[in-house]
Amino acid sequence: MLAALLAVELIAAALVLAAAPPVADTPLIVGDHRSVVLDNRGGPGGAELLVRVAADIGAAVEAVEAFWGTDWSHRIEVTATGSERQFAALAGGVADGGDVSQWADVAAVAVAERVDPERRSAIGQRIVFAPGAEAMTTPALRIVLTHELFHYAARADTAVDAPRWLTEGVADFVARPGRAPAQAAATRAALPSDADLAAPGPRRAQAYDRAWEFAQFVAARFGTDKLRELYLTACGPAHVDPAVAVPLVLGIDLPGLLAGWQQWPG
């Protein structure tokens, strides 16, 4: 997956979203009676991007509902930004003069002002697109939108310290299921670290692919329902360590599961 398609999900500081202008009141209804609000801060390019988002959001919602169910926010806010600095500020709270280089290959993020998984509450959520997203192909944009929408849907059920290799891998599985592995089995030495997933450039692209392929493998071998159960067990508010969650849900220890993934699809 090209680095430009990747997205890093952060919970933005409350002051970032509190300082943002009001969201434009232009809702459309999709999926299980979900209201989509499109907020353009990117001029003509942002307007064009949001037209494309509006065309794809219904299919993205259907994909997320098919995997995750319908018990999640019925309000979806999507923002198009007009500059890299504006995107970085809304995405992660980068102040004036701060380094925005980490966002150079990020197409979109799903952010929230405040999250309380214990109460299944996520306040001030939105999906924020970088200005460069308007140049993406239609299939690539659909993947990014669906990936971020999964994070949006799962946010209230995802602990802050959940393993990112699983949260990102499952989001990519929902966004691009049923495709052949992108990397040779020999390159899957280990699951990606947080540092791998945060590093701009090819390292991050390869890390996302490894996480995605792991999720694909689990779904192919144990079924999609088991992948969802593994997510909830290893990433939910009362989550346990993956080394405990994997045998609990899948009936195999984590080293054995990783060995199977490293040889898959052989």
Rank of each mutant, 00 (worst) to 15 (best):
A54C: 02
R41A: 07
V53S: 06
N40S: 08
L49V: 08
G45V: 02
G43I: 10
L49R: 00
N40H: 06
G42Q: 02
V53D: 14
S35I: 00
V30Q: 06
E62P: 00
H33M: 06
G46E: 03
D56C: 10
S35E: 09
E48S: 14
D25R: 13
H33E: 11
V64A: 12
V64G: 07
L38Q: 01
D25V: 03
R41N: 08
A60F: 11
V53Q: 10
V64T: 10
A59T: 14
D25Y: 05
L49P: 03
R34I: 00
L28N: 00
R52Q: 15
G31H: 09
D39Q: 02
L17Q: 13
V64S: 08
P21E: 01
A24D: 04
E65I: 10
V36H: 03
D39V: 03
L38S: 03
A20I: 06
L15Y: 12
V36R: 01
S35Q: 15
V51C: 05
A60L: 07
A14G: 15
G31E: 10
G31R: 03
G31K: 01
P27S: 04
V61M: 05
V37S: 09
I57A: 10
R34W: 10
V30N: 01
R52N: 09
A63Q: 14
R52D: 09
A66N: 14
P44G: 07
L17G: 12
G58H: 04
A59I: 04
G42T: 09
P27T: 00
A20L: 06
V61I: 08
V51I: 14
A18M: 09
G43F: 10
G31Q: 09
N40F: 01
D32K: 07
V36K: 01
A55V: 08
D32Y: 12
T26P: 00
V61L: 05
A66F: 11
E48I: 03
L38C: 05
E65A: 14
L17R: 15
P21V: 02
L15V: 06
G31M: 04
L28P: 00
G45S: 13
A18E: 14
I57D: 13
G46I: 06
V30M: 04
V53G: 04
P22A: 15
A24N: 01
A47M: 03
P22S: 13
G31V: 03
A54E: 15
A14C: 08
A18Y: 02
G45K: 11
V51F: 02
E65Q: 15
V23E: 00
